[in-house]
Amino acid sequence: MTANAASGPPPASEAPLPPARPGVDPLPAPVFILAPPRSFTSLICAMLGQHPALYGLPELNLFQCGTMAEFNTGRNPDGSVKSPFWATMRHGLLRVVAELYGGEQTIESVNMAERWLRQRVGMDAGAVYREVAARVAPLRVVDKSPGYLRNRLYLERIVETFPEARFIHLTRHPRGQCESVLKTKGGPAVLFTLNALDRSGPEPVLDPQILWHDSQVQVMNFLEPLPADRWIRVRGEDLLNDLDAGLGGLCRWLGIDDSPEAVAAMKRPEDSPYSGVGPVNARLGNDINFLKAPSLREGGVTVPSLDGPVSWRPDERGFHPWVDGLARDLGYT
């Protein structure tokens, strides 16, 4: 509709969007959840992301890349393939771009996101991460990309990009985590590609406790030199079995509202735009089991025991002493 006086303040819907290519600061410090797969990361990331001051992301996997050329091609600078699952590991970022820049996650908006990625092929992956963070600012992004634990370099890229980032070391009992990995569609293949093989016997045995152990050590070694106020360790089972205390505690640690209203919002992970299967050209971005059933379940979480044989080994051995010791250090019995 034409108006006589075209000048003057624009209506609210005409307000400029945040800059597409932001400068360096200020950006609210993101929150990264560090844990191996099947450690409640999808659920807890989505719950945190429902806090009014936070924005939960699917797995972006950006810090597995130095450049967007790496991200787009799935190849390392030396030409090697990053992961046989790289095509699906791009789904998280595709869904985020589709949602943030297109307002929807559809085949069409994911195609748009692919163009968005191509436009940034010459950029550092960290710069693109900052662009995403700026897009949702003043909300703080919450990320959980278990792939970051594959390489110390990936974790160091986080602090290079976000020196003030906060980290949540999320743990799960090794028995529950290992059994869950093995039960998950594609889980054994992931274990195989991550070399979670016990070669001490005459035949290699797929043993998920290797991944559990190495992931925890990777996280602990990474966090140890950081200032103590920058990270926190949370047992996933404790959090899920007492949500009010667990979520409230995390809010206070992050310095954000811990009111009952805020905590209530966090108990609705299914409200996240990423809590569901995406369009056919970007279906995942998160654990498929979570995507199919993202709501909190009744009844809490059972904490298993470290004692006794593990179910996945044909030799009926229990946990390796290193795993047992580390798990006890983390408070499991």
């Binding site: 945040p18 009014p52 924005y55 943030l100 929807e104 559809t106 949702v136 209203e261 805020a262 919002a265």
Partner: peptide, 21 residues
Amino acid sequence: MTAAARAAAPASSALSPGLGP
């Protein structure tokens, strides 16, 4: 606070859905 914080956020929550086919 939920509504206020979301309203202040110029992110997808502020991006009203467009008109699709």
